[in-house]
Amino acid sequence: MWVYEKKLQYPVRVSKCDPRMAKFLIEQYGGADGELAAALRYLNQRYTIPDKVIGLLNDIGTEEFAHLEMIAAMVFKLTKDASVEELEAAGLGAHYANHDNALFYENASGVPWTAAYIQAKGDPIADLYEDIAAEEKARATYQWLIDMTDDVDLQDSLKFLREREIIHSIRFREAVEIIKEDREHKKIF
C-alpha cells in the first residue's frame, strides 16, 4: 500500500500564461515515455525480478507517480482559466472537442495511452535495459520541453524532473551490475 502526502515532490510554479505549452507537456503525462508509463512499467515488473532489485523498482515506480502529479499540476494551471477560444488558439481545439479542459492520458498528438507502450518480458536483463532506455527517452523529452518554454519557473520544475531521470538511469544500471555479479557466488539452497 501507499501513504499519500498532500504536497508535490517538488514545487510547480508556472508564471507565464501559455496554454499552448500544456499541449506539449501532456506528452510526459500520457505519452510512451511519460510518467504514467514509467510508474506502471516499474511497479508491474517488480514482481518478476530478482529480490535484490525489487525495492528499487518499487521506489522508482512510486516516485514516477509523484512526477505524474507534478505534470498534471502544470497542465491544469495552464488550462483551467482558458476560454474556449483561447484553448483553440493554443492548438487544443481537438482536445476541447473530446475532453473540455479535463486532463487525459494522451500524448502531445492526442493519441491515448496504451499498455502497448510498456513491456514485462520476465527476463531481468531485458526488463532493466528497457527501464534504462525509458529513463533516457524521458530525459530527452524533458530537454525538448525545456527548449519550448521561456518561463524560467516552469523550466525549473522541468529541470528537476529531468535530473531525476538521470539518477533513475544510473540506479537501473547499478541494478544490472548487481544481477550480473550474482554468478560469482556459489549458492546452496
Binding site: 510554479r13 508556472v14 508564471s15 507565464k16 500564461c17 501559455d18 496554454p19 494551471k77 495552464l78 483551467k80 482559466d81 482558458a82 476560454s83 518561463d151
Partner: peptide, 13 residues
C-alpha cells in the same frame, strides 16, 4: 467556484 492561486499564470476564471 474555481480555486485561484496568487501564483496562477493566467487571469482567473
Amino acid at each position: 467556484p474555481l480555486f485561484h492561486s496568487p501564483f496562477d499564470p493566467c487571469p482567473p476564471k
